[in-house]
């Protein structure tokens, strides 16, 4: 096994593990808002690691800047979609989980600041 193959496998395995943990999080956490933490963040880093693995694997055939663009676009869209899912869930009165201790958005909606 060449050095490039070893580095590639480390990146790909890390990425796959992160995406696995992210899916466990979606199953285990208890409300929409907490699930978006897991779905939005951990999988972003997972995709980043997978893409870096691909980049390193194909370096002997030339540096491929398209893969860096793919990482950039995932980074631009993931936070946005998490925000929109959370926002629309809150606007359609999805309740927070029972452990929640603070809700400053509710007070401000009642005061018509939002």
């Amino acid at each position: 096994m060449s050095v490039i193959e070893v580095i590639t496998s480390i990146f790909v395995i890390t990425g796959a593990l992160l995406i696995f943990v992210s899916s466990i999080g979606v199953l285990r956490l208890r409300d929409v808002y907490s699930r978006m933490h897991s779905a939005g963040k951990t999988s972003t880093l997972g995709v980043m690691f997978l893409m870096l693995g691909v980049l390193i694997y194909f370096i002997p055939e030339g540096f491929n800047a398209k893969i860096l663009l793919a990482i950039l676009f995932v980074f631009m869209t993931a936070p946005l979609s998490a925000l929109m899912v959370n926002r629309s869930a809150y606007r359609s009165d999805v309740p927070l989980e029972k452990n929640s201790i603070r809700d400053e958005l509710k007070e401000d909606i009642e005061n018509e600041k939002v």
Binding site: Y33, M36, H37, G40, K41, T44, F75, M76, A78, P79, L80, A82, L83, N86, R87, Y90, L105, V114
Partner: peptide
């Protein structure tokens, strides 16, 4: 807002 969404335990909502 996007940086907040990608960092420790926080997601921006509104």
């Amino acid at each position: 807002a996007s940086l907040i969404s990608l960092t420790p335990g926080t997601v921006s909502m509104d």
